[in-house]
Write a protein that binds this DNA or RNA. Structure first.
Lengths: 142, 142
DNA sequence: TAAAATTAAATTGCGTACAATTTATTATAA
DNA sequence: TTATAATAAATTGTACGCAATTTAATTTTA
C-alpha cells in the first residue's frame, strides 16, 4: 500500500494550470464569437497584428503550436479572408502567412476584449504580475 | 488607427497560462504512455484513487469537464478495465464510475510521476506555492 | 554534381474540449 | 395522477492539439 500525497489532484500544480487555462479561454468565447474567431485563431491574429507576415514555423514557435494544428487553422482564417497563404519565392518550403485588410480591421473590434475578460478575472495588479513572471519563467525553462 | 497594447500576445495573462499548461502536460506524456493513460485519463484516475466511486456529474465538477468529454473518455478507461460504469440503482440517471483492482494497482506505478515531472519544471518552493494559490484564487472566483 | 541529409508544411490518426441537442429518468405541480 | 419541469448522460458537430509519417524543396557532402 502506497501513500503518495503528490498523487492527489489538489497537490498538483499542473492541474490548476490546465483548469485555469480552459476556464479563462471559455470566458473569451462570447466576445470572440462576435469576431467569428476561436481562441486559437485569435492568438494567431494577435501575432499577425504585430508582424504583418510570418511563416508557419515562426508562428508555431510563438504560439507553441505545430503545423498539424496550424495548417487547418490557417486554412480557416484564409477562408474567412483574414489572411493569405502563399509560398515564399526565396524558399518554396516556407509558407508565408500575411494579414489582409479585413484581418487588420478586426483589430479595432478586438481591442476591447482583454479588458472585458480581465475584468472577470479578479486578481490584484501585484499577483497578476507575479503570475505572469512565474509562467514565463516556466516556459523559458522548458 | 488604434494602439491597443493589451492586444499584444506578451501582455496577455491567458496566453502564457494556455501555453504553460500545454507544455507541462506534454512533459507528462512519456511517463503516462507507460501506464497507457492520456493526461485527462490520468487526472480522472487521480480522482478515483481518492474516491473509489463517483458519478459523472461530480467527476465533471472536480475536473472542470462535461459529459461530452467524459463519456467517451470513461468508455476508454472501462475498455482498459481500469473502471466500471454502471447505472445507480437509486437513480438511474446517474452513472456510477467505480475503480477496479487493476485501476487501483496503477496508482503504485503512477506514484513517481509527479516528482519526475516536477523535477523538469524549475521553480522555487515559494514561487510554486504562490502560483498554486493564485491559480486556485482565479478558479474559485469564476 | 548526384545521392544523402535536412528542413518546412501537410497529412493522418487519435483523443480531447465544449456548445447544443437529445434521450431517459425522476421530481414537481396543476 | 398525469402533464410539466428538471436533471444526468449521451450524442452530435466543430475545432483543436500533437505524435508520427509523408511530401516537397533545399542543403550538404561524398
Amino acid at each position: 500500500m502506497n501513500n503518495c500525497d503528490a498523487l492527489k489532484l489538489e497537490n498538483q500544480l499542473c492541474f490548476p494550470l490546465y483548469a485555469c487555462s480552459k476556464e479563462i479561454v471559455r470566458r473569451y468565447k462570447p466576445y470572440l464569437d462576435e469576431l467569428d474567431l476561436t481562441y486559437t485563431q485569435y492568438i494567431t491574429m494577435m501575432v499577425l497584428w504585430e508582424e504583418d507576415e510570418i511563416n508557419v514555423k515562426e508562428l508555431g514557435k510563438k504560439l507553441y503550436l505545430d503545423s498539424g494544428t496550424l495548417t487547418p487553422l490557417l486554412k480557416k482564417l484564409e477562408a474567412k479572408k483574414y489572411i493569405t497563404r502563399t509560398r515564399s519565392k526565396e524558399d518554396e518550403r516556407n509558407l508565408v502567412v500575411k494579414i489582409t485588410g479585413k484581418g487588420k480591421a478586426l483589430r479595432e473590434k478586438a481591442c476591447e476584449i482583454p479588458a472585458k475578460v480581465g475584468s472577470c478575472v479578479k486578481l490584484s495588479e501585484e499577483k497578476a504580475k507575479l503570475l505572469y513572471e512565474t509562467l514565463y519563467q516556466i516556459l523559458d525553462s522548458m
